[in-house]
Design a binder for these strands. Structure first.
Lengths: 222, 222
DNA sequence: CGTCTAATTTATTTGGGTCTAAAAATTTGT
DNA sequence: ACAAATTTTTAGACCCAAATAAATTAGACG
């Protein structure tokens, strides 16, 4: 039923998936090479392999896109990755910045049963500790038009368009902090240590914890 | 600090460790080949690699034994394996016979921190779901003076505390036979002809072949 | 048309692991 | 103690996955 894929093949699928959510159009060889820190020629090779396995659609010089089954596979790896991140963060109390590397390993242990049991154990979480949405078991993934503030790069200016966590506690905090819908803010610095962020709001510099930034939806502005 | 080992190298270490707990003396090339279902010549090759990395002591034709650091590494893999088994069994509710295969994968994800956090999360378990002892973080492992059922005298009552052969085939057999950890059984008769045993389990009389009885660890009760 | 850039092909390399066949060392049987 | 049997080691080759450099080709565009 499910083809055995190597570690590397799975990483290519993931990369193509991630690039194609950003770019919409077919993904170029160079983009992939860039993302995976390898050479374009290597990418072409791998693409051919994946095309043979019907995981990507490939026409020479036209870039690649995932087929239905390729996408399915990619999404399920992402699902795995994010579920493990939740596990590591919530149950094992790893810190925010440690979970990614470990999940990179764990995501490749492929067993549908394991994934579903883990999902149930974690109480069907919808987002990982970085604020990224977890695909459901049918492969549906929340279309994030709205990025969490946590995912934004330094230097970008954006406006608040929503919240993920609508608890009164959180809303009260926002109120006190003078952050509201439509507030404009600019990302000045990201602290690797705890992933807190230094932002400028209303010409004031403020530090926001990851807890905050992953629950604030924003839209980039130019 | 810790050398990167391949999946295969780690499996050789595990195999050597497991064989040397049974045999006490140095482990022979053939035994390893047998256990790993490969050829003796391949084993010699790998042994040399491991010897270069100072993980085993190796003198030609004399068999191998683990060095201090080799043993340490092997034990930590076993520790990992068994902790994951506990996790899968207790938290994710996998059945007894499913956990082994998955743990075979998980054990190779090597991170001291992960192991220790997992250990703490599981509340420092001392035995895995098959009844095998979990080494502590310093690499000490409980010396099991578990007897195999095969060695027990007629008339004695005992409880199942583990298995020697943890193949899924064997575990499945036990499952079908309604024999599980903690099952109480009494030895009614030993058949000299084929060394099979007549035992009483759950008030039912059953005959168990020697193949079975020598792979079932039990503890005597009064 | 000529030029530039991105993509592809080809031929090699590297790393990891295994295997066969033959030689060498060890063990066993008498 | 010595020939026979067995185990272990060598040497050489093989296979696979993946990456690479260098040369070639396709497509875009003034």
């Amino acid at each position: 039923m499910k083809i055995e894929l190597s570690f590397t093949e799975e990483n290519y699928l993931k990369a193509i998936f991630s690039l194609s959510t950003i770019k919409e159009s077919a993904v170029s060889t160079n983009d992939i090479a860039n993302k995976l820190e390898t050479k374009a020629s290597s990418v072409t090779d791998m693409i051919k392999k994946l095309a043979e396995k019907k995981l990507v659609d490939y026409k020479k010089y036209q870039g690649v896109s995932l087929t239905k089954s390729g996408r399915k596979r990619a999404v399920s790896i992402v699902r795995n990755h994010r579920l493990w991140e939740v596990f590591l963060f919530e149950k094992l109390e790893f810190s925010w910045d440690e979970v990614h590397e470990l999940a990179e390993q764990l995501e490749h242990i492929y067993s549908d049963k394991l994934t579903e049991k883990l999902d149930a154990f974690l109480d069907h979480p919808t987002h990982d500790p970085h604020g990224d949405p977890i695909p459901d078991k049918d492969g549906n993934i929340e279309l994030e038009k709205n990025h969490a503030l946590a995912t934004i790069e330094v230097g970008i200016t954006c406006v608040v368009v929503g919240v993920r966590d609508s608890s009164s506690l959180f809303l009260k905090f926002l109120d006190n902090s003078k952050i509201k819908l439509g507030s404009t803010l600019k990302v000045l610095h990201k602290e690797d240590f705890d992933n807190s962020m230094l932002v400028k709001i209303d010409n004031e510099e403020r530090s926001l914890s990851n807890q905050i930034t992953k629950n604030l939806f924003i839209k980039e502005v130019e």
